[in-house]
Amino acid sequence: MPDTADRRILRHLLADPAAPAATLAERAGVTTASLWRRQERLREAGVLKGIQARIDWRALGWEVEVSLRFTLDKTNPRAFDEFLAALRQVPEVTEIQSFLGSVDWRASVIARDMAHWQQVYRDRILTLPHISELDALMLVATIKDSEELAL
């Protein structure tokens, strides 16, 4: 279980993941050596899964983001596996989540523009196997995008 110093490290790491180790250690009130040991212990415990680059796809010209919700035809015992295998092959899919309830899967899809979105939707999404219901929600604005919690 993380202690107070671990929580400070995590809090500062979330706030500025690109901060150099010495800066992060200073902000968290620990030595750099202690920071490295604590981070390694947090990784081994599965608390700290890694540090990722977050890409702003819009800055790279991908203007359209759509959240798709899929309900599958559950009469085929291979439906989930076959659907997932096909969905993973769609290069514009940036995230896939599975759910319990009326929606089985959710996927985030990006496209350069509306013409590209229509092509992806027609050629790649609608051809996925075993879909019984599909709902598309186009992103208008992101109000909050944070993994920060009170630590």
Rank of each mutant, 00 (worst) to 15 (best):
V93L: 00
A86G: 07
D145W: 08
L10W: 05
S108L: 13
I9W: 01
V64L: 03
I51S: 10
P77S: 08
V30M: 11
A59Y: 09
P129R: 04
Q52P: 02
E63S: 15
A53S: 06
L87Y: 07
I9Q: 01
T32A: 15
W105R: 11
L13N: 04
P2Y: 04
L151N: 02
G61P: 12
E133W: 09
R122P: 04
Q39M: 15
E26L: 15
K144P: 07
S146C: 08
S132I: 07
V93S: 05
T127Q: 03
E65D: 09
V90W: 01
V30D: 13
V47N: 02
W57Q: 07
L60H: 14
I9P: 06
F70G: 08
S146N: 09
A15P: 04
R41E: 14
L87G: 07
V140H: 06
D123E: 15
V109R: 06
R41G: 12
I125H: 00
S67M: 07
R27Q: 15
L134W: 02
H12K: 03
D104I: 06
L13Q: 03
L134I: 15
W36T: 13
I51N: 05
V109H: 08
S34Y: 03
V140E: 00
L42F: 12
R122S: 14
L151S: 09
M138K: 11
T71Q: 14
A86S: 08
W105E: 01
A53C: 04
A19T: 14
F99E: 00
L68N: 03
K74W: 12
T71V: 07
A25W: 11
R7I: 13
M114C: 01
V140M: 04
A19K: 14
T71S: 15
Y121E: 03
A22S: 12
Q89L: 11
R11Q: 06
F99C: 05
G46V: 13
V120G: 00
A115Q: 12
L60V: 09
A115E: 11
T32R: 15
D6V: 06
S108N: 11
L35D: 01
L137I: 10
L10C: 05
V109N: 01
A111T: 10
L24G: 11
E133R: 13
R88C: 02
V64P: 01
A21Q: 13
A111R: 10
T23D: 12
P77D: 02
R8Q: 14
M1A: 10
W36L: 13
R8I: 01
E133S: 09
K74N: 04
E44H: 14
A79W: 09
G61D: 02
R43M: 13
A21S: 12
G50Q: 01
